[in-house]
Design a protein around this nucleic acid. Structure first.
Lengths: 253, 253
DNA sequence: TCTTTGGTTTGATCTAGATCAACGGGATAG
DNA sequence: CTATCCCGTTGATCTAGATCAAACCAAAGA
């Protein structure tokens, strides 16, 4: 990277930073502050810390780091992984802008997962003890935070159902739809996007081998449900994809 | 059941009821009040409602019921199930004394699961709005409740890892160990107990067919890891069971 | 008593997905 | 330019667990 683009990026980031607040964040309908009053949002905004963006492969936090904050993803994407006793990695989830990660650390006061950026990503850090204090002053915020955790439980349980009795096809279709709708919420294209994660990560997450992941992608492609070129995806028949995801339809060959 | 035992049971229950309080509950190291001060426990105790026990098959709550309470299991056991669009049941989890259920309902203000008693079970109902008010007065309680939800997230994630890449053997062994340790915590026998749930429920929960569940049980029996007679289980070699559960050991035939 | 019913076991066979193996790019480095 | 990675694709084969089928058994009713 040369100096010119370096400076350019820095300026953009600076400009960006001055404007940033929970009040004008485009994600504030998905993220924490929804349903708060203006002055409450302002109080929350004051405790939120916005560090410099993470580069691809950088850790947001690691397993066993002491828990002191939760993090809202602003842009980019991350994966959460845990390491088994045998040392192999298990991908626990992918997270996109508007989602909040780190709540698993609360129970034992240290994170049970590591979180790694899949691409250049920016996050908002929300120090937990200050959030807790603020919650005592703003009951709506307390309620909202509880709902956030409850929503995480709901998502985990949907995933349990999927992993427990979904076919490889269902798993892949469901993941694609998740990314698609997540894009849609942010007013990005729900039909054309780049997968931020490798086949390895996808397979690991869904309990499949990379070969199976690859085969399902080409199968979906051949059946004109998606177009795929390496990591570039276009959804060409979303209703069939939905049918596959829910198990109402099966494609073979 | 004849009249004599009927009366007997009723008396026991009456006697029991008068004594019941979070302060002297044998489960209070596992359940909500841990680490609260005595007078705080008393305040909590005042909002906890103890209804009559559920009979086998009775619902604690149903999907879409409006969320107004969480429930601590006092005795017995329950299963949480969700119903897919196609109407088939998915067992989301089994819950034993000391565990708290119902937190999934918080996000959408209605339960996303139904919870059914697997055997005669008693529960404590903790009305959520009163718990929320109390949390504002007792910050430790707020923290504790958050930890409870965080712990649920941790458990769900461990389950995701198990379902994602565990063999049938690992899944069954892990479930048996969970029940065993849960019994141990309550100072019951960790090695001899009756499974409260059917093979159907076990298979549904673990993403296996009942035939596979049955075959794994007999395989464990033949290898002298457990003894099983219908639903009566004895763990005869817990270290091998642990090895199987963690994937360090595999038994065939 | 016999019959029904729901849960459980066991055997035979089938298949979705794993495993093994080979190859094909694109990126980075020497 | 070539060598080395790493990632992804494709084909051939294998296998854990599903599916299909039959039988068993205990509890509940008639």
């Amino acid at each position: 990277m040369n100096n010119i683009s370096d400076i350019y990026l820095k300026d953009i980031h600076c400009l960006h930073d001055k404007r940033l607040s929970c009040g004008n964040c485009r994600l504030n309908t998905i993220c924490l502050p929804v349903s708060l009053h203006l002055d409450d949002i302002d109080k929350l905004n004051q405790i939120v810390q916005r560090g410099k963006p993470l580069n691809k492969g950088e850790y947001l936090y690691r397993v066993n780091d002491t828990f002191d904050a939760v993090f809202a993803i602003r842009s980019g994407s991350v994966k959460a992984i845990s390491i088994s006793e045998k040392g192999d990695e298990q991908v626990m989830g992918f997270h996109f802008p508007g989602e909040v990660v780190g709540m698993d650390g609360l129970a034992e006061n240290s994170y049970t997962n590591s979180v790694i950026a899949l691409e250049t990503s920016s996050v908002c850090e929300i120090p937990f003890n200050r959030l807790e204090e603020l919650s005592l002053l703003i009951p709506t915020l307390q309620r909202h935070f509880l709902q956030l955790m409850s929503r995480e439980i709901m998502h985990d349980q949907q995933l349990i159902a999927l992993l427990g009795k979904g076919s490889a096809e269902m798993k892949i279709a469901t993941l694609l739809l998740k990314i698609s709708t997540s894009n849609g919420l942010r007013h990005l294209s729900a039909n054309n996007f780049a997968l931020p994660m490798s086949r390895i990560d996808i397979g690991n997450f869904l309990g499949l081998t990379i070969e199976t992941v690859s085969r399902i992608f080409t199968r979906l492609h051949k059946n004109k449900v998606i177009t795929i070129d390496n990591r570039e995806i276009s959804i060409t028949n979303i209703s069939v994809l939905r049918n596959i995801s829910s198990g109402d339809q099966v494609i073979r060959i």
